[in-house]
């Protein structure tokens, strides 16, 4: 059987990088790049977190200021003063300005209400 001749043109001249070694280097590089990527992401998230914390703090401070302003505005004294500036005075309605519906009147029948009438009249006379 004739000996198979090697193609001299295909023979690699000089240093050859073995495939397993090459794979190891690529894997290590990928790990290193992954680490860098994660580190960068952590830094960015930290910055985002800080920015959000700052925004939250600023909003909380603004909320405090606005709460204070609102409380000052709607205080009884301030409302009274504001009305006074416009020539108005607000008071609690007098008893004769109030229409009262006697509790239970609607639930009871007409006859019951008729029977209550003398009692009410008596009470008013008593007054």
């Amino acid at each position: 059987m004739p000996r198979r001749k090697r193609n001299r043109k295909k023979k690699v001249q000089g240093f050859v990088l073995p495939l397993p070694f090459m794979a190891g280097i690529v894997f290590a590089s990928a790990l290193a790049l992954g680490y860098i990527r994660l580190g960068t992401d952590c830094d960015r998230l930290g910055q985002d977190l800080k920015a959000l914390e700052t925004a939250n703090r600023n909003l909380s401070r603004r909320l405090l200021t606005e709460e204070y302003r609102w409380s000052r505005m709607n205080s009884a004294g301030n409302l009274e003063e504001a009305l006074w500036k416009h020539g108005m005075v607000m008071g609690i309605p007098r008893e004769d300005q109030i229409v009262r519906i006697v509790p239970g009147e609607r639930a009871q029948g007409r006859e019951d209400r008729v029977s209550e009438a003398p009692l009410l009249a008596q009470a008013l006379r008593h007054e």
Binding site: M22, I25, V26, S29, I36
Partner: peptide, 20 residues
């Protein structure tokens, strides 16, 4: 091609690690 790829990969990784 393999050498170039390994060199670029290693260079990038080393540069990144140095920066970090």
């Amino acid at each position: 091609w393999r050498l170039t790829l390994a060199g670029v990969g290693l260079g990038l990784a080393m540069a990144g690690l140095c920066a970090r």
